[in-house]
Write a protein that binds this DNA or RNA. Structure first.
Lengths: 242, 242
DNA sequence: TCAAGTTGTCTAGTATCATAGACAACTTGA
DNA sequence: TCAAGTTGTCTATGATACTAGACAACTTGA
């Protein structure tokens, strides 16, 4: 009456995946932390690296880990809780979650206001604007990409200012604006286009939350308007009805 | 974030085996009961019959079920608790467990007492004896095979009497012996030989418990002596120190 | 700029899993 | 005695799992 091996009939990659998942669940691998390399995992489980890759692939599909080519595989953090208040600051929200906020300039250019942009910013159509493309991250994880428009007259050289400030709050402070608040917010959803998907490190066909918002100064005068695309699988918006 | 199929990475035969084992554990398949046919199981799990056979094979290897060719596959009952008391009756022990006791004559012949047999039966060496080979079962399961020796003078024609009585207790009653008790018991273990293995429906190489015992009448006079070989995986002896 | 370490991708071979069909061997009950 | 139903065994085929090795593509830190 020999004891049967409890693992017979269970694929090796499944055993590895279950082992890693248990490690994440009980905190042996903390959220955001880097897992051991695939080669090392293969050695500890005495298994081929391809088998480890299959295990990690299933975990990644379920959103538990995220592989970064050339760097490592990281434990995927829970969704970022993103409260939508009148005073919404990305850096404060991320910092409150114990994570490190980053901003990164992708591109800055000039363009003229369309009718829609002009209405949002209370300017005339054709007014010169500065357009800033940026990505914002929590720790290593890209959260959203934003296209921001500001008046080129009021915020001269905003592109290079943002490049060093890496934060919209600091950019506005640079121009003497100590406080601002959210004027309007509209939320919709879409599928990430190719460039957004690349910048967000999203698989093709994954959804994004599209947020159109305008920030205003304490007097209610529009300062900036932007369209942000959030990786839907990494955030959840909290609507606070106050 | 689709929920992963909990069964991916688990072999089909394993899922079937686990399902049947759960059925046994929670009583859907009672001990000793016949399982549905392999074809029927294959249909309910929507799986090939060979896959079912593999599942059943692993359960059989662990002793949970027992296949009988041409008949069916049966839930292997728990080990028969076999108390070793001065008044030990196979039929009573089995009946107390809610199972149906059977005795079956294999062979009866005459031979003369060796020195050891003579000493056990308090007879002279060379005394004619009747030797009975029998198998005892609980429900459908063979529990033990026994070789029994009695005095041919005191129990004439014992072989044919046992063939119809199918019980040692009834055989002795036939000769006017209303009561008897266990005189001596010695227990050892061995590997089943080919003929015992066949009669006990045991795989080759499986152990048997060998019990040498002598029953005596109320005055302490030896009546029968026997050597029984119990399928070790189907019984456990309870020694009651009183 | 470079070396080390990482994940991504490809080809190839072996073993196991699962299905399919056929038939033998056996038991049971009519 | 026979028919129906059972488990046992065989061959064959395709899919999946696992191993093995090599190299590309990329990140990181010195």
């Amino acid at each position: 009456m020999s004891m049967q091996d409890a693992a017979t009939g269970v694929a090796l990659w499944r055993q590895v995946a279950d082992g890693i998942e248990r490690g994440i669940a009980d905190g042996r691998f903390a959220a955001g932390e880097k897992l051991p390399g695939e080669t090392e995992i293969a050695e500890t489980y005495r298994v081929n690296r391809h088998t480890v890759r299959r295990a990690l692939a299933t975990l990644a599909e379920r959103g538990l880990v995220r592989a970064e080519r050339g760097s490592g595989t990281y434990v995927e953090t829970r969704r970022l809780a993103y409260p939508l208040r009148s005073r919404t600051r990305f850096s404060e929200i991320v910092g409150a979650g114990g994570r490190e906020p980053h901003g990164q300039l992708i591109d800055a250019s000039e363009e003229v206001a369309t009718r829609e942009l002009a209405r949002e910013l209370a300017l005339k159509t054709g007014t010169p604007l500065i357009r800033i493309e940026s990505v914002r991250l929590a720790d290593r994880t890209p959260i959203c990409v934003s296209t921001t428009w500001l008046s080129a007259e009021r915020f001269p050289d905003a592109g290079s200012v943002f490049a060093s400030a890496r934060s919209m709050t600091k950019l506005l402070a640079h121009y003497g604006i100590r406080d601002y608040r959210r004027g309007s917010t509209r939320i919709s959803a879409a599928i990430a286009d190719a460039s957004d998907a690349a910048r967000l490190d999203l698989a093709l066909g994954r959804p994004v939350l599209v947020v159109d918002s305008t920030d205003v100064d304490p007097d209610g005068k529009p300062l900036v308007t932007k369209r942000s695309r959030f990786a839907a699988e990494r955030v959840e918006f909290l609507v606070e009805n106050s």
